[in-house]
Design a protein around this nucleic acid. Structure first.
Length: 108
DNA sequence: CCCTGATTCGC
DNA sequence: GCGAATCAGG
């Protein structure tokens, strides 16, 4: 298993949202809680308490570009994805799956 | 005993 | 850098 942007973001997301390493590991799949903790540790995480963009539920009528916060608020490179958001979704399909913690009801 | 995260060790 | 094993705390 390789740690891609999606998994790392989901890792930080769930971790910051109060999820335990075991939950995150299971959520990602193919990784054990040790791997999650190890990755989190290497990412200099463990000091959880980040933003929770996944908690922001916008109405399914918002036609705006993907406003997924890339990086951390305060970082000099903090920006938004600004990709093409899915129809009626605040984020692009890519990040929508992350935001809604989608597993099977993929918004393809 | 169970769980948690953190750290260390080997690959 | 990755993951497992191990350590320490709850």
């Amino acid at each position: 298993m390789t740690w891609t942007e999606e998994r790392v973001e989901l890792l930080k997301e769930l971790w910051g949202n109060g999820k335990t390493a075991a939950d995150i590991a299971e959520a990602l799949g193919g990784v054990t809680r040790n791997a999650v903790i190890g990755k989190a540790n290497r990412l200099n995480l463990s000091a959880k308490g980040e933003a929770k963009p996944a908690s922001v539920r916008a109405e399914p009528s918002a036609k705006r570009p993907c406003q997924w916060p890339i990086g951390h608020p305060g970082e000099p490179d903090f920006r938004f994805c600004n990709k093409e958001a899915a129809a009626g979704k605040p984020y692009c399909v890519h990040h929508c799956n992350l935001a809604y913690q989608n597993r099977d009801s993929a918004a393809a």
